[in-house]
Design a protein around this nucleic acid. Sequence first.
DNA 1: CTCATAAGTGAGTGATCACTCACTTATATC
DNA 2: GATATAAGTGAGTGATCACTCACTTATGAG
Lengths: 219, 219
Amino acid sequence: MGEQESMEELFSTNENELYGEELTAKQKRIVEAAIQMFSEKGYSSSSTSEIAKRANVAEGTIFRHYKTKKELLLAIVTPVMSNLLAPFIIRDLDKVLSQNYQCYEDFLTAIVKNRQVFIEKHLSIVKILLQEIPFHDELRSQFIDRIGKEVYTRLEAIVIHFQEKGKLVEMPTQSAVRLTATTIGGFLLTRYILLPNNDWNDEEELKTTIHFIMNGMKA
Amino acid sequence: MGEQESMEELFSTNENELYGEELTAKQKRIVEAAIQMFSEKGYSSSSTSEIAKRANVAEGTIFRHYKTKKELLLAIVTPVMSNLLAPFIIRDLDKVLSQNYQCYEDFLTAIVKNRQVFIEKHLSIVKILLQEIPFHDELRSQFIDRIGKEVYTRLEAIVIHFQEKGKLVEMPTQSAVRLTATTIGGFLLTRYILLPNNDWNDEEELKTTIHFIMNGMKA
DNA sequence: CTCATAAGTGAGTGATCACTCACTTATATC
DNA sequence: GATATAAGTGAGTGATCACTCACTTATGAG
């Protein structure tokens, strides 16, 4: 599955730099089994014994690599959380924007398409993240402080950027950011979590959604 | 005056007493303690022993009234789920609409304001519902079959109603429904779950949101 | 009052939980 | 090949889980 290959990328670039370790074969199986179980039954309804069984590994092996069950959860969820909205936190966003996108619409389309690929790749982990973030302070505060606020200021800058170019109509910046974010978030939530089995015409639906945003922010 | 009355017609259900008066005093305390714990720590991380402790009740008393812990959860969550979107499922919606609301905008404003009151009243239970619905088939299938589909067809009818009156511009009905629903859902989610501690000017924010929807569906 | 029924109790139960530890096996370095 | 270190094992542990049951107390009808 795509999720296996991509997992290696994601975890090796993050965990290995921090701890100088690579994932062993059994460790990979543990992580995969945990992702499967956590997303199916929820974190606290998943037992380490069944994770071990699914991974074809002794239960003790899990605790060789992760001191606690929660540490296993965080090892899975943290890198995805960091990367989920990473494209917004690039440096010199202004330059990139003015060089590559003439209008807000083009920029939005590009970035949403990009994030759709990421979500499709890591859907199970995104589900786990959404489920568990209310109950784990480390996750929530890290998301708010290091990601949420950062992303908000960038989004704000983007909106202002296009407002100054006259490509976006005047409206309180805060509202423009919120409406853009919730509309896109609502689209992705519907597309991948609520009604993933609908017949989705992704290209068409994204176009409609972004048109809707642009129209909504006119006049 | 007339508007007040019609709103009442439209929206009044017995939402004040969701659990009836046949609950004993201790049973009420159990339900309240369970709501508190489920919303704070999640359903499966909440133990019946601590629920009993918080309710100042013997643990056995819980199981006098509810055969299992899950039955307790469903007793809490089901009535709120049924009432959450109930205003959409009234009979003769067409007549009520044409009598009381000249445009989609007015209708949306009225119904969202009404649902905000309901959500504020039952916020903890709404949170529990959102958290647990992915993991309990009875909840999910009941929501989809008895509520989701019903609400969708009504919303569809409403959109068509206003489209025929020429008050709404032509756009695939399905898209209009989805965009309206996710934008409002996104607003409510942000308002009450994600950033409940913001300085919200509810009146202003709702107006902005609905204007955004109306503009988005023009031309 | 009597008595049937419902409400309430709390010690007890087997199952399961996350986690430990003494131990074996594999790997790498010299 | 000796040695050290890391990876892997699985039986074992106390804690906690949802739930039971024999029992007491409260309620209400005849």
